[in-house]
């Protein structure tokens, strides 16, 4: 029996960093917008917990993969905008290929099981 698609998926450990970096590839953004963007593009499957978003952003900043500056939002309020640094871009590329390899490997292993179940 094939399972019903869940309304929400739990984020895997470590994937939030990758998602943030990927989101910032489109351009600088503030925390709230990043969360919303991830939610939207994942068709509401991924829910970013605010409780882990901000620690993650600060961690990435400490690593030097993203940089932050205070700017005015499109609504004219001061907001902390994060943008990708060159080092972050490199990190994203390597993380992305790692993730793709991982996803492919998972797919390869899981596929026969699915077929058996059918």
């Amino acid at each position: 029996m094939s399972p019903k698609p869940p309304t929400r998926v739990e984020l895997l450990q470590g994937t939030l960093d990758l998602l943030i970096l990927r989101t910032l590839l489109a351009g600088p953004s503030h925390g709230h917008a990043i969360a919303k963007h991830i939610q939207r593009t994942s068709e509401e499957l991924l829910q970013v917990e605010t409780g882990s978003l901000y620690p993650a952003l600060h961690r990435l900043e400490a690593q030097g993969w993203i940089a932050a500056s205070w700017e005015l939002s499109d609504k004219g309020k001061r907001a902390k905008y994060y943008r990708l640094t060159p080092r972050g871009r490199k990190q994203l590329a390597s993380e992305q290929s790692k993730w793709q390899a991982f996803a492919r490997a998972m797919g390869l292993v899981l596929k026969p099981a699915d077929q058996e179940a059918e």
């Binding site: 503030h30 925390g31 709230h32 917008a33 605010t50 901000y54 600060h58 900043e61 400490a62 690593q63 030097g64 205070w70 939002s73 309020k77 001061r78 907001a79 902390k80």
Partner: peptide, 30 residues
């Protein structure tokens, strides 16, 4: 690098606190 960045943050810890507060407040407002 990360170490030195953290070290430099240490120096402006109060303003860092304020910034975090403002950042979260902005999130709430949004």
């Amino acid at each position: 690098n990360a170490f030195f960045r953290k070290l430099s943050w240490l120096g402006r810890r109060p303003s860092k606190e304020d910034e975090l507060h403002a950042e979260l407040q902005f999130h709430l407002d949004e």
